[in-house]
């Protein structure tokens, strides 16, 4: 990961994004950007479209309107090849982990390496073991996803997301279904990864503890007005956001 000159454009920029499922409007007029090495929180109440926004950022869903820029490139404006190039630079941790259940943990981590690197079989195995040990799963190479606990599955999925040393990491509710200690460990791991790998991270979550512990930038989606109503550092928003909805949310409703 190279340091960028201050003038380079933000690595991820969203402009006037509108999201719909069929004729059902989910969110519109989303314009924000994510800076290099941000831990960017996408927050909002249940059902406001956080996960949908994530799906738009990672190119699973095509926006109804507006664009998503990675650096200078419009994700949907370019050719299939440019999308592929961007995708290789993205690691995603899905809500349920989404490990391929027919493959062992090491094989799961190996799939992206096999696809996108010229490494030999032995080197790929080494890489996979290393990535697994990074997330605290050393020695679990030959386990199948169904044989390990939920928290371990999430960490294994994180190892897979890290396989290609991506510049961008996306997390969909990383702490959902984890006990507080595991959730804290995962938060620490996310911070550690940002600092050591220099990754830019976007997280969908509504865990306040995580939001304040690791987030340094955020966007708040509102289900009623169907647009974003705040953006910035969540710790700042908690006390200084002009919109009472956001302050209430960040104070667990105790305002």
């Amino acid at each position: 990961m190279t340091d960028s000159s201050p003038k380079s454009p933000p690595p991820l920029r969203v402009e006037e994004l509108e999201m719909r499922y069929g004729s059902f409007l989910i969110q519109s007029d989303l314009t924000f950007h994510i800076n290099r090495q941000d831990i960017f929180i996408i927050m909002g109440g249940s059902g406001c479209g956080k996960s949908t926004l994530l799906k738009h950022l990672i190119g699973l869903v095509r926006p109804a309107k507006g664009s998503v820029y990675y650096g200078e490139t419009d994700y949907w404006g370019g050719e299939e090849a440019s999308r592929q190039a961007i995708m290789q630079n993205i690691g995603i941790l899905y809500q349920q982990g989404a490990l391929w259940s027919s493959l062992t943990l090491a094989e799961n981590v190996a799939v992206p390496l096999k696809e996108y690197s010229d490494l030999g079989a032995a080197e790929i195995r080494e890489q996979a073991s290393y990535k697994l040990s990074l997330v605290g799963l050393a020695g679990f190479d030959d386990f199948y996803p169904s044989e390990i606990s939920g928290g371990m599955r999430k960490r294994a999925a994180l190892a897979r997301a890290l396989a290609l040393d991506p510049e961008f990491l996306f997390f969909d509710e990383p702490s959902a279904g984890l006990d507080p200690v595991s959730a804290k460990l995962l938060d620490d791991l996310i911070l550690e990864l940002r600092d050591t790998l220099g990754a830019t991270i976007a997280i969908v979550t509504h865990e306040l503890a995580s939001i304040f512990a690791i987030g340094n930038n955020s966007v708040f989606l509102d289900a009623e007005t169907k647009t974003m109503i705040a953006q910035g550092d969540p710790k700042h928003l908690r006390d200084h956001c002009p919109d009472p909805k956001v302050r209430t949310f960040l104070h667990r409703g105790e305002l």
Partner: peptide
Amino acid sequence: GTMQVNEEIDALQTLGI
């Protein structure tokens, strides 16, 4: 279908496979 439910197919797609 189960892979679809577990987001495993999404995971393939976002890897560009």
